[in-house]
Computed example of a mutant assay.
Amino acid sequence: MSERKSDISGWLVRPASWHLWAVLGAVLGAAVARTARLTSDGGMDNAIVVRAARVWLAGGSPYDDPHFLYLPSAVVAAAPWATVPRGVLSVLVPVLVAGCLVGGWVCALRLHGVAPRSRFAALGLIGLAAGFAPFAHLVLLGNWTATAALALPLAVLLVGRGRWVAAGLVLGAAVALKPLLAPMGLLFVFARRWRALAWLAGVPAAASAGAALLLPDPAGFLTRTLPFLLRGDDGFVRLYEASPLAVLPRAGVPAALAALLAFGMAAVGVGCAYRRWR
């Protein structure tokens, strides 16, 4: 059995043939072509951000749309996209999203010492692109979560090589676009990498503060978006996507107890993360 496993492992680490790369290209190309055919502005999620940028360029507030759930810095980042023809966006955005996902896969391979040109690398990516629903959904929706999918393994790879400041810059840039990776700051706190943590927090803070000054509603993210996220379900943001502070009261839990339970769960999560770090 051990010899068989060794043979399989040896086969997987060998360089992939051009046939595998051709299959991979066809699978990724099909995902991009499907998105270009079915969507405008590169997908629903990307369309929301680009529409917010168009509203801002026209003199309005992007936070008039309750479904724009991004930091002010994302508005400025999306502004160039607002000037690109929709037909170009419908192709360019899925290409970039797929590129971010491929880049994240390559970083993950490097993190575990697997050659990016190996058969495992090609077959794994084919499996993700063809059979893993979140991969297809990110490409179809043009979801900016793809930037986090690239930034997370890249940052961990940099941390593993002792380049904490570079990792903080990567994560800070990703948070400025979409604040999914903000909890990664805990890693820097546990490691007492205060300079790197300052970059992680400072990049999105400075970018958002500067961008907010350009908006007609500078505090829109705080006064509109955060309350919306806490309230939860409106038919667009489903209840399971909302905060426990929104979910628990709907289940009959008193508001005060719901807040206590929510903060308690957060504390348990932080405690588990710290024990895992130790």
Rank of each mutant, 00 (worst) to 15 (best):
P179M: 11
G103A: 09
L214A: 11
A212M: 00
A173K: 08
L213P: 02
C107F: 14
A173I: 10
A206Q: 14
A166R: 06
G172R: 13
R193F: 07
L180Q: 11
M184P: 08
L128S: 07
A201V: 12
G142W: 12
L214D: 03
L180A: 14
F135S: 03
W164K: 06
L111Y: 15
G113D: 02
A201I: 13
R161W: 14
T147N: 08
L150I: 07
A149Y: 14
A151V: 06
A206V: 12
L197Q: 01
M184A: 11
L215G: 03
A121K: 09
H137R: 15
L123K: 13
L214W: 15
P134K: 04
A129V: 04
R117V: 08
V165R: 10
V114I: 15
G168I: 09
A196S: 00
L138P: 01
L138G: 05
L169I: 15
W199M: 04
R192T: 03
V114N: 05
P216E: 12
G131S: 00
L180I: 14
V106D: 02
L125G: 00
R119P: 00
L111S: 07
P204G: 05
L213T: 05
A198D: 06
H137D: 15
A182M: 06
R110Q: 13
R117W: 15
V170R: 02
A108F: 15
H112A: 11
L150E: 00
L187I: 15
G185L: 07
G185H: 06
A146I: 07
A148V: 08
A201S: 08
K178Y: 08
A173S: 09
M184S: 13
V175W: 10
V203Q: 01
L215E: 06
L213Y: 10
F190Q: 04
I126E: 04
A149N: 13
A115W: 15
W164R: 07
R119S: 04
A136K: 13
W105L: 07
D217K: 13
A133H: 06
W194R: 05
R163T: 09
L200A: 02
L123N: 00
R110P: 03
G172Q: 01
A207K: 13
P216Q: 10
G168C: 05
P134I: 08
L125E: 08
A211P: 04
I126D: 01
F135R: 12
R119L: 10
F135Y: 03
R163D: 08
A212Q: 11
A211F: 09
A209G: 04
K178F: 09
A151E: 07
A146T: 03
F190V: 00
A155D: 07
L109G: 00
G185P: 01
L215D: 04
F190M: 10
A201W: 14
L101Y: 12
P134L: 09
A108T: 10
P218V: 04
V170Q: 02
W144T: 15
W164D: 02
I126N: 01
L109H: 01
V114M: 12
V203E: 02
A121E: 08
A121D: 06
A136E: 06
